Simulated assay, not measured.
Amino acid sequence: MTGSTPAGPVPAGAGTGRRPGLAAGSARPPAEVHDVALLDLDGVVYVGPDAVPGVPAALAVARERGMRLGFVTNNAARPPEEVAGHLCDLGVPAVPDEVITSAQAAASVVAGMLGTGARVLPVGGPGVAAALRAAGLTVVGTAEDGPEAVVQGYGREVGWAQLAEAVVAVRNGARHVATNTDATIPSPRGPLPGNGAMVRVVRDVAGSEPLVTGKPDPAMHAECVRRTGADRPLVVGDRLDTDVEGAHRAGAASLLVFSGVTDPALLLAAGPPHRPDLISADAGGLLVPHPPVTGGDGATWTCGRWAATAGDSGPLELRATEGEDGDPGDGLDGLRALCLAAWARAPEGSAPQVRAADGEARRALAAWGLAAR
């Protein structure tokens, strides 16, 4: 199979009936419930050149339990062969056919619109041009070569010269296609400019809105489902606006991890398309059960030994309901309760204030980077 094959719809078995929502949790580890994990890479499997600590071992255990892995990345800089090689170097065995990049999705879309052989100007890392060639498109180097489309993806070497060629080509009538519009990418130094920042340069100067083909468009996840034959896929990602929304649009369940760009404050403010089914510190969450969240009177939500209360107005309140220090499980039960309280009070999403009812709650909020009031 090749990345140039257009993705079809997600199979019926991966449809909307399999999204339980954060309140339901998962009584069994997700690796035992879902047959395939569709893993984002940046911020999930690795940050920069290095693996997220513990994740290669966790993915190995998930495979031992029968879960298959697919790798779905909005980063278009590298071809699948190079991505698979990097994963192998990090201790995550992978082959190119298990990797779906946004460059492949863009190339499929352009080939479908313009036909094979169409002239296309790539902007980005080597993965962009490689995907275009694999889809049967003709790669050109300048605006003067008469490209019918510009495909723009992330590349660390992208600079003024490439952006200028893209602007001229788009002004001359070329279709502007962006592999993704992620504003940032995670790094050991914190978030850095992503492809979306460069796409905005071309959009603003050329005055033309790009066609965006990467996540959250469901084509990438659908293609990975097709390749793996998944019946119960689980999208594992670190971004609300691409991974979680993409899972919703593809009819798949989602696991949000905090090893990349999303933090608890962003999660609490999430609107309905950006609310995951499960949360975890990292991809090790595939291996453990996830507790449910219950709401007794509609204003108070409980998870484990934590309760979160949301009145009609004012801050949400978190308190420990029993025992002394310590939170059994993964340490996120209180955050799960806070999420349901926040989402119940603000169905469309908004940034809530949070206060602690006791010292233990104050320490928990500090650990999640939430200001305790």
Rank of each mutant, 00 (worst) to 15 (best):
S4P: 13
A7S: 15
V10Q: 01
G15S: 06
A23G: 05
G25M: 01
S26G: 11
P30I: 09
A31L: 07
H34G: 02
D35G: 03
L39M: 04
L39G: 07
L41T: 14
G48R: 14
D50P: 10
V55Q: 05
G66C: 03
L69E: 04
N75W: 08
A76K: 02
P79K: 02
A84M: 13
H86F: 14
C88F: 13
D89S: 15
L90G: 06
V92I: 02
V95E: 15
D97E: 15
Q104Y: 11
Q104T: 15
V110L: 00
M113R: 15
L121H: 08
G127C: 00
A131P: 00
L132Q: 05
A135M: 02
V151F: 05
V151T: 08
G155N: 01
E157N: 11
V158Q: 01
W160H: 10
L163C: 04
A164S: 12
V167W: 06
V168F: 07
H176R: 11
T179K: 07
A183I: 10
G190L: 01
P193C: 04
G194P: 02
V199N: 03
R200F: 07
V201I: 15
A206P: 07
G207E: 11
E209D: 15
G214L: 09
A219D: 11
V225Q: 03
R227N: 08
T228R: 04
R232F: 09
V236I: 12
G237V: 03
D238Q: 05
R239M: 05
R239Y: 02
T242R: 01
D243C: 03
R249W: 10
S254C: 10
S254A: 14
L255M: 14
S259Q: 13
V261W: 02
V261H: 03
L267I: 08
L268A: 08
P272D: 13
P276S: 04
L278K: 06
I279W: 02
A281E: 13
A281Y: 07
G284A: 05
L286C: 00
V288C: 00
G295V: 01
G296S: 00
G296A: 01
T302S: 05
A307S: 09
T309E: 12
D312I: 01
E317C: 02
L318Y: 02
L318W: 05
D327T: 14
G334M: 03
L340Q: 11
W343M: 07
W343C: 00
W343R: 04
W343I: 01
R345F: 03
V354A: 01
A357Q: 12
G359I: 12
A361S: 06
A364N: 12
A367K: 13
W368D: 09
W368T: 11
L370N: 10
